[in-house]
């Protein structure tokens, strides 16, 4: 696999905070097999309907919001806050954009990006002549 084909993380440090909330880049794992890529990212507190995944010009953006139940007062100790999560990845052209699927379970998001049929490795039968 050459570098151009690999799913790479976009080096984008210009993320701006929206709605005055902090934006964090969630830790992510990237896996690949013959059928496609798999991105696994930690999005604690985020519900499935608060996740937005877009593919635009080869750029995959994962955005999630953690809407903490409104707590105005009573904080005795705070180590984390309601956060927007955002992460962008450059996706190779060989991805079948229509086949992308995502699943969220226990605060962990899994995005599956299948490779288009044309680039999947094929086994060629050799027949005895």
């Amino acid at each position: 696999m050459n570098d151009e084909q690999a799913l790479t993380q976009e080096n984008d440090t210009t993320l701006q905070s929206i709605r005055g909330r902090p934006v964090a880049a969630p830790p992510a794992d990237i896996y690949e097999n013959d059928d496609g890529f798999l991105i696994v990212a930690d999005l604690p507190g985020v519900r499935a309907d608060a996740v937005d995944i877009r593919l635009d010009h080869g750029k995959l953006t994962i955005h999630g919001s953690w809407s903490q139940p409104s707590r105005e007062t009573g904080a005795l100790a705070r180590e984390f806050h309601a956060t927007d999560f955002e992460r962008r990845f450059m996706v190779p052209d060989s991805i079948d954009a229509d086949g992308i699927s995502a699943e969220l379970s226990q605060g962990v998001l899994q995005v599956r990006l299948p490779k288009s049929e044309a680039v999947k490795p094929r086994r060629i039968e050799v027949r005895a002549g």
Partner: peptide, 15 residues
């Protein structure tokens, strides 16, 4: 528990 899904090669592991 964080384990690589079976049959996959890891490109990046941050978790």
């Amino acid at each position: 528990r964080v384990s690589a899904p079976e049959g996959y090669a890891a490109h990046r592991r941050e978790r």
